[in-house]
């Protein structure tokens, strides 16, 4: 039976992009203001969950063709890699560093820290675990 939920789908198409943009904002402001990888990942999976609610599992898997278990592995590898990176410079494990670079779009003296890469690992793990749990529970009949 075809159901008519035009209002929900139209609202979802707009709102999910706002939620995902807000989650990326939360991820990048984590260094100086409240936010970070954990809440950013949770908000991203909230936006994807809204897509899952308005559409169905197979449609969402066809527009976002990620295997979310591999996303978890990528995030863990990224966090481990930033930890090991300190060992190559005769520093202890998980030593982080930062520097100031002149980037063309973001202006001069943009601070880039390797803690962002660790945070990206946290972000990917949180998105992967949340979406794996939701999809596994959703497709069990």
């Amino acid at each position: 039976m075809k159901v008519n939920d035009l209002i929900l789908k139209t609202a979802t198409n707009v709102v999910s992009f706002i939620i995902i943009t807000f989650s990326i904002y939360l991820f990048f402001t984590g260094h100086y203001t409240p936010g970070g990888g954990f809440i950013g990942g949770l908000m991203t999976s909230g936006g994807l969950l809204l897509l899952l609610l308005a559409y169905d599992l197979e449609t969402v898997q066809s527009i976002i063709p990620f295997d979310f278990k591999k996303v978890i592995a990528t995030g863990l590898l990224l966090a481990l890699g930033t930890g090991i990176g300190g060992l190559f410079f005769d520093k202890p494990f998980l030593t982080h560093t930062y520097g100031y670079f002149d980037l063309p779009f973001f202006g001069e003296d943009t601070a880039l820290a390797t803690a962002t890469l660790f945070d990206l690992g946290v972000y990917l793990v949180v998105v992967g675990i949340t979406m794996t749990i939701i999809q596994t529970i959703g497709e069990s009949e």
Partner: peptide, 16 residues
């Protein structure tokens, strides 16, 4: 939205 979908159709996330 999740609660209303559960009330309307009996399941939250559908396969098809």
């Amino acid at each position: 939205v999740a609660f209303s979908k559960f009330l309307e159709r009996g399941e939250v996330i559908e396969r098809d």
